[in-house]
Simulated assay, not measured.
Amino acid sequence: MPAIYVDADACPVKAEVMKVAERHGLPVTFVANGGLRPSRDPMIRNIVVSGSFDAADDWIVDHAQAGDIAITADVPLAARLVEKGVHTLGPTGRPFTPETIGMAVAMRNLKQDLREAGEIKGYNPGFTPKDRSAFLQALDQTVRRALRANQGNQSS
């Protein structure tokens, strides 16, 4: 059974993750440096890591397995997860796959260089209802794909 891991520090879709996970009976682990609300749901686990740089990322990479699902806006973390065979989505529903992660990393690095050079401002676009809807649809599709793959692996 796949599990869902969420890079939760600035994740705008925690409620959507819980909704889809509940529908499919999947466990969810929220990982953050702090500020997580406890849940009475036994399928929800909160992990608070140290405040050190990349502690949440490292925890997720250490615990996620191939076939699991991860939610993150952090492109370097997404690259590490894709390499492990984890189904990885951004909070807008953007899938990170072996075919797309190289370009995502290159664009992230280019934008970082342009921000540091003062060529562009460091503003991210606002999170919209359209993004939320796209995420819900993408997560549901990803969960179904992960469940099918898991069933195929169990029958072999």
Rank of each mutant, 00 (worst) to 15 (best):
P2M: 13
I4C: 01
V6F: 04
A8C: 04
A8Y: 00
A8E: 00
P12L: 09
A15N: 07
K19E: 15
V20A: 14
R23W: 09
R23C: 14
F30R: 08
V31F: 04
A32I: 06
A32W: 07
N33R: 12
G35K: 07
G35M: 13
G35C: 12
L36N: 10
D41T: 05
M43Q: 13
I44W: 03
N46K: 03
N46E: 12
I47E: 14
I47K: 05
S50C: 01
S52M: 10
F53S: 14
D54K: 07
D54E: 13
A55V: 07
A55M: 02
A55F: 08
A56T: 06
D57K: 04
D57Q: 09
D58L: 13
W59T: 00
W59A: 03
I60F: 00
H63I: 03
H63E: 08
A64R: 04
Q65W: 00
A66D: 11
D68L: 04
D68Y: 02
D68G: 08
D68T: 14
A70V: 06
T72S: 02
D74Y: 06
L77F: 14
L77H: 13
A78Q: 09
A79Q: 05
V82W: 11
L89R: 11
G90Y: 00
T92A: 13
G93F: 13
G93Y: 10
R94P: 01
F96E: 02
F96H: 10
T97K: 05
T97L: 04
P98V: 01
E99R: 05
T100I: 03
T100R: 08
R108T: 03
N109S: 13
L110Q: 11
L110P: 05
K111C: 02
L114S: 05
L114N: 07
L114W: 12
R115Y: 06
R115F: 00
R115D: 08
E116A: 15
A117T: 01
G118T: 05
G122I: 10
N124H: 10
P125L: 11
P125D: 10
G126A: 15
P129C: 09
R132I: 07
S133A: 15
S133K: 15
S133C: 02
A134I: 07
A134H: 09
A134S: 14
F135C: 08
F135V: 10
L136V: 11
Q137E: 15
D140E: 15
D140K: 06
D140W: 08
D140G: 13
Q141F: 07
V143A: 04
R144G: 14
A146S: 07
R148V: 11
A149M: 07
N150K: 09
Q151I: 01
Q151N: 06
G152C: 03
Q154D: 07
S155P: 01
S156T: 10
S156Y: 12
S156I: 05
